[in-house]
Design a protein around this nucleic acid. Sequence first.
DNA 1: TATTGGATGTTGTATTCAATAAGTTTGAGC
DNA 2: GCTCAAACTTATTGAATACAACATCCAATA
Lengths: 251, 251
Amino acid sequence: MKKVNSDIAYEFIREKILNGKYPPGHALMTEVLSSEIGVSRTPVREALHRLKADGLVSIKAHLGASVKKMGVKEFREMCDLRLALEGHATGLAALNHSQTDLRRIKFALEAMRGLTERIVAAKSEEPLIDELRSEDVHFHVAIMTAAKNDLIKSEILRLHLINRLLFLPSTETEEQLSPVSKKDSDRNRLKVMESHDEIYEAIAKHDAPAAKRAMEHHIQDIIDKSLRAIAMSGEGGISRVLTDEELIYSG
Amino acid sequence: MKKVNSDIAYEFIREKILNGKYPPGHALMTEVLSSEIGVSRTPVREALHRLKADGLVSIKAHLGASVKKMGVKEFREMCDLRLALEGHATGLAALNHSQTDLRRIKFALEAMRGLTERIVAAKSEEPLIDELRSEDVHFHVAIMTAAKNDLIKSEILRLHLINRLLFLPSTETEEQLSPVSKKDSDRNRLKVMESHDEIYEAIAKHDAPAAKRAMEHHIQDIIDKSLRAIAMSGEGGISRVLTDEELIYSG
DNA sequence: TATTGGATGTTGTATTCAATAAGTTTGAGC
DNA sequence: GCTCAAACTTATTGAATACAACATCCAATA
């Protein structure tokens, strides 16, 4: 599969958005981007429209494109959608998973357990958090894969990328200082592990309703936490809130 | 909101696809379309990419675009997704609906009841079927609106449009002859009315779990019917199957 | 001060050019 | 004479550039 210029532009811009180089609200002008990327405006335009379809960019005719800024209403709606989809997919995973799928889920689960224990035991949490987040992603993706429905899986992944817009590593000088104490974070981490255990057990037992319930509960926790963070951080238009490693799919 | 050429091209092509003028698999060449629509290739290209994002068109680099042809696997996945979304949305509708929402739902419900009775009583079903289908759409859309989640609503509407690709009025000479007897169709119509009543009652009572269950059951019926039709009609790649008025959102 | 007119910059569109894929012809080898 | 392959032809997409339309800003003027 040969990569065309529009793909290059797409990946370039997408990367910058997800890295926070282009923060929410940042204007995306075709001329600037085209000279920066090294292709003409045409493929850049195409890339921007694809990103709009992904929900990462908003475009208004004659007014140009900008990185999507999510409002509180939109955020709540997205959370709700995610709850429904991921819950359903987990139910499917309980029914459809293969032994390989199950092993992969278990592997991510145990990796997270090890990391969590080490983090809780350690004074500083810094170096292991990225790994933990990464394994968290693995865990959830493994479940979505086990559900054996590519359409739902891709839809969920799309939502998580949009979600990520809200919890970007800060580009500005101020480093993201965690507002919660390590003790609180640790308690949360242990709670996450419990939820994951519960989800895994239900899937392993082919208990679809239980798996679904457990996942819905888990995600509701995450959503509650996000909404609290947003409420504290900014009112009205959400621009950026503090990172938090148990907000999954952020690594 | 001024309409730009790319919008014109988008609506033009979309319309033709949904009408069956461009059947699944039909090649969509930019040159041809641009001369037919009266705009240059550039906005046509853009329109095709938007339609790809909608799921109505598939594009391969250097090979061009064509109207989406859905495989059986993809169709099953879509049904599953729809079940999850529409079920969830109906639960939300039970919780969030306003009195106006409820009135609108009731109105569509009663319109359908009247039409159904007249169709069952009549010898021929022809003239009223389109109206019935239209009211069916109204009923479901009214519920999605009552759910108060625009994101989920638009997602569901998108799925229904894709779904419609499978149940297009035939473009070819052979008119879509209903393979089921009127008696069978009538029985089905009455069953649909029962399901709708059940859904409405649950929403009116603010009983979210019951509403959700009822809607899931209803949609599962529709899916089963679709799959049977597909199984009878064609194997492997689904190109076109017979129309059926209780396949909602088709009018 | 409010408004209108132009200056400027950016998007949207058309057109031209380049690259790719498929189809066709030509020709060498058997 | 037939087959297969390679080169050429053609059709169509992808990209670049040139041009037109629109929105915004600023200044001049009533």
